[in-house]
Computed example of a mutant assay.
Amino acid sequence: MSAGYDAHTDDPLASMALQPQDFGYMTQRCLQLTRRLVLGLEGGYDFNALAESVVSTVQSCLREPVA
């Protein structure tokens, strides 16, 4: 799965408005379809937004609640 972190609202390249928790939610949805995911870091040019989004994704993989 390529998360496409450049869709974050603070990213300078995309015209999308996703928040970190949105990436966590999408990861949860994928995990409802399959128990195995391969994640690749792709996109994300605002480093703070990237870090928050990756944390949300990993929390979902660990079955922690997405804040």
Rank of each mutant, 00 (worst) to 15 (best):
A51D: 13
Q32P: 04
P12D: 04
D11R: 00
V54D: 13
Y25N: 14
S53V: 00
D10Q: 05
V58I: 15
M16I: 08
G24D: 08
F23S: 07
A17T: 15
R35C: 02
Q59W: 08
A14P: 08
L39C: 13
Q28A: 05
C30A: 14
N48F: 02
Q28V: 12
E64L: 13
R29M: 08
V54P: 14
Y25S: 14
P12N: 03
V55I: 15
E52L: 06
S56Q: 11
S56Y: 00
Q59F: 04
A14F: 01
A14C: 11
F23K: 10
Q21G: 12
M16E: 15
Y25V: 13
L13D: 07
L18K: 06
S56P: 03
L41P: 13
G43T: 07
G44E: 05
P20T: 02
L18Q: 13
A17F: 00
L13Q: 09
L50H: 04
F47E: 11
L39D: 12
S60Y: 02
S60F: 01
S60W: 00
C30N: 10
R63N: 15
R29K: 10
S15A: 06
R36W: 13
L41T: 15
Q32G: 11
Q19P: 09
L41A: 14
G24T: 11
V38N: 02
D10A: 06
N48E: 12
P12A: 03
V54T: 14
Q19Y: 12
R29C: 07
M26Q: 12
Y25Q: 15
V38D: 03
D46H: 07
E52T: 04
A17I: 08
V58L: 12
R29S: 08
A51L: 08
D46G: 02
F23R: 07
Q21L: 06
Q28E: 13
F23P: 09
E52G: 00
